[in-house]
Write a protein that binds this DNA or RNA. Structure first.
Lengths: 336, 336
DNA sequence: CTGTTAGCGCTTTCAT
DNA sequence: ATGAAAGCGCTAACAG
């Protein structure tokens, strides 16, 4: 299997030259180059990526850490596949491969280990939370100068590593839209505050309310699952029936959909009895009846940027990506 | 960075012994073992996975090939993430890592190359089609004795490598269910016949129809996207209004949802004017109004099995996995 | 532009 | 049970 030797002989060159031809790094005379390529193709020789990585002491892989996703789906699969798509494209352009690291429930976050094992040359952490353990693991990467990226999660001191959309602005857009549609008292349905994301979205809601001098309503808090949306429906119905709120700005689509379904069972229809807006513009937003108004952030673009950070190709992310409102029926005022 | 040497010195053993301790292959006296482990942990030594793989001439990775997914989504992200979840679990149990290989639109299918490059030690192909190029690429794996697995796609001569659910039975279940609910003339909405899957589902429909001596209606054919469902709505409406059909058994949820939405615009409601069943029991089935009756196959279990095949741990897949009918409102006859 | 020569950090005989 | 030594298939100086 010392195939490279054979190729070298056949082309009448040394093994080093064969190597040069394939790595493309150094200059080789076109003529010898062709001879080598010819010989290689005849013999069916392909360099071992493994040996190459070993010799260079670096794996060309970029690791993607996915959070543990139990049956109760907090995130939509849509969200991750969009991001993954973007990562995948950028990685391909740089000849990097993706190592998928699905987190198990117990498992410690030993991100640095992945680098020491030479399994990855860069890391992207999806669905990180703002906790002590996570921060510790990330700080260790920082200390060792390992390239990594966080998506949609800011952490103190690690801002340079975060790729995100301007979720404050996105949430503001959604709330402002509800107000423009003539719903005068939108309430906010938020997510767990250990995602910076959740906090931003709440702030956006407040901004929009302040801008028109509207009273803020105490937000309901769910966990981003559809189930939690269903569970909050009763409380939301009370707000609506009691006249305290006439619209709901949810921090993600899944909760919005749960609310839409739960409120329907209680006799309240989105677009007729209250205005509803979600966030993420997931697949599901197009499937409900009425279709869900939502906010779209370019997840694939975020994936691309994260990959560039993890490849060390980008020093720090550009500003926050601008979200866009996607208007559908759930927020429009239908005749009664 | 010749860290292993330091560990060896500190523990008073040779480098070979350090290696033995970490690879766990050969027997080492417990006492020396402990000394080595102690020294290693003090020095923060971790063996390079890259060097190990190189020395063994095999990467422990299992590659997962994902089809190119353009904007128009033919498959649901749900489908792939369920399968990936199963693969990921099984891989973890065997200490293998997942290399994600997203296919680009143009790219040739050079599966065998991945093995020669030593990038993967096993391969799982998702979303394969029954075409000449695909078959050729797979046959080459077969010839070279490389372990791989196909998910939900049978191909002549490669049956041993296919993990799938019994989609004929699943489709039969769905159609039979519609008949039991009192819809006497269900029509079938199929997918492209270059998926064995599509052909099986059509057969299942026919079986169920034959079993009750019902006349088969000429099936409509879409491409598994919601859009194609929307586009077929007009034709479906004609069938229903013309009295030729009173129910629809769709080959997947996305088309079913498109039909449900398209038919609604034409004034026809699922569960009232016609019965509707989808297939896959995707996330979306729970989001529509009425909720979609569907057929659930254990995608994560299929992922597990595929991983075992790709790891060479399973010689051939067990029989086809049994699907299960999930009854919701779209197929139930509501009072008019 | 090309050949020579060391490694890269492990695993794996083969001895002892 | 452990040590010594020879690779694994490349890259990377260093010459020429």
């Amino acid at each position: 299997m010392a195939m490279r030797k054979q190729v070298a002989d056949k082309a009448g060159v040394s093994e080093a030259t064969v190597s040069r031809v394939f790595s493309g790094s150094e200059a080789v005379k076109p003529k010898t180059r062709d001879r080598v390529l010819q010989a290689a193709s005849e013999l069916g020789y392909v360099p071992s990526e493994l040996a190459r990585q070993f010799a260079k002491r670096r794996s060309g892989n970029i690791g993607v850490v996915l959070p543990y996703l139990p049956k109760v789906q907090l995130f939509s699969t849509y969200y991750f596949s969009e991001i993954l798509g973007g990562i995948s494209e950028a990685a391909r352009e740089h000849g990097a491969d993706l190592l998928l690291l699905q987190r198990s429930p117990d498992e410690r976050r030993e991100y640095e280990l992945l680098f020491r094992q030479r399994k990855v040359g860069g890391l992207i952490v999806l669905g990180a939370r703002d906790g002590e353990e996570e921060r510790e693991a990330l700080l260790e990467l920082e200390r060792n100068g390992h390239p990594y990226a966080l998506v949609n999660q800011r952490m103190d001191g690690l801002e340079r590593r975060t790729v995100e959309a301007d979720h404050l602005e996105g949430s503001r857009l959604a709330t402002a839209h509800l107000l423009e549609q003539g719903w005068s008292r939108p309430a906010f349905i938020g997510g767990p505050p250990d995602y910076s994301n959740s906090r931003d979205r709440l702030l956006g809601y407040r901004d929009a309310m302040s801008a028109v001098g509207a009273d803020r309503i105490e937000p309901l808090v769910g966990n981003y699952s559809r189930k939690s949306g269903l569970e909050m429906a009763a409380a939301a119905a009370r707000l609506i029936r009691g006249g305290e709120a006439d619209a709901l700005a949810a921090a993600n689509d899944r909760m919005a959909i749960g609310l839409l379904q739960g409120l329907r069972q209680l006799g309240l229809e989105a677009g007729r009895d209250y205005g509803l807006a979600g966030y993420d513009d997931s697949d599901g937003a197009r499937l409900t009846q009425p279709a869900l108004t939502s906010v779209s952030a370019s997840f694939d673009e975020m994936g691309r940027l994260a990959a560039q950070l993890a490849l060390g190709e980008l020093k720090r992310p550009p500003g926050k990506l601008p979200p866009r409102l996607v208007e559908r029926e759930s927020s429009r005022r239908r005749g009664v």
